[in-house]
Amino acid sequence: MSKLPSMQVALDGAMPDMGLAEVARRRLVVRDSARRSIGRRRTAGRAMQVICLLAVPIALAPLVALAIATVSKGAGALSIGFLAHAPTPEGVPGGGISTAIVGSGEIIAYAIALAVPLGLFIALFLFERPGPIASAIRFSADVMSGVPSIIIGIFAYAVYVERFHHFSDVAAGFALGVLMLPIMVRANEEAMRTVSVDLWEAGISLGARRSRVARSVVLRGALPGVVTGNLLALARGVGETAPLLFTVASPTFAMTLLIFNDATQPYPDAQQTAWGTALVLLALVLILSVIARTVAWTLNRKTR
């Protein structure tokens, strides 16, 4: 990406000849240049456009290949029994992933219990109290949302597992909650910002208590954004593996861990299970994303 080279010449600024003949000459130069260069400019532009457009199939190819592979290989594993039965040891047929589904559900429930209310109140704090403290919290939320999930897993291990000497879904839920929290905080605050400060101000100056204003004005207005943001954060949390790695007792107690574990097994059965679980997970995440978008869309229409 080269930029337009700046004029690097000293400009003396002597008034150029402004005579009519000189103007006509300059005009001719531009016209001539425009006419002669247009073919080259258009061809070069088309070439660059084609190059840009070629990037689109390159970008979509992995997505399509991944979707096809997951559906085609995962569908073979899916059955009622696959979802309802507990895993069996290697070599024993008929195993399912029920324990992983239940485990993931439990972990997510803990994560929601931690992150959703906390995210809401932190966002309200940021919204109502501009100032250095809020700026610091906002900045750390932004930086936290970039902290690798594996580090949050290590953190949960250090805080819980090492202290109480056992793996636990609570620790895993804590890790996922910490992971989702900064995303939720920022999404909630953005949603609240779309509610006019004037409304908040009007509520406050009418003499209503802050909590009532928060409930009746801010939250009601921000609801579509809050729901959407929380669901998208949840979708991210559901698919995380790294925070669970050091907090969950067995890979059979969480879907993502089960995939990680079975993917590296040489047995076709295990790989089949991994694909099946991946398909379930993918469907779950897709459903969450679609619900998030639909909620945003319908609630936005209703409030308008």
Binding site: M7, V9, L11, P16, R26, V29, V30, S33, A34, R36, S37, I38, R40, R41
Partner: peptide, 12 residues
């Protein structure tokens, strides 16, 4: 419009 001559650019 394709004018590249530095002297011309400066003058114009």
């Amino acid at each position: 419009n394709g004018v590249r001559n530095k002297r011309l650019l400066r003058e114009m």
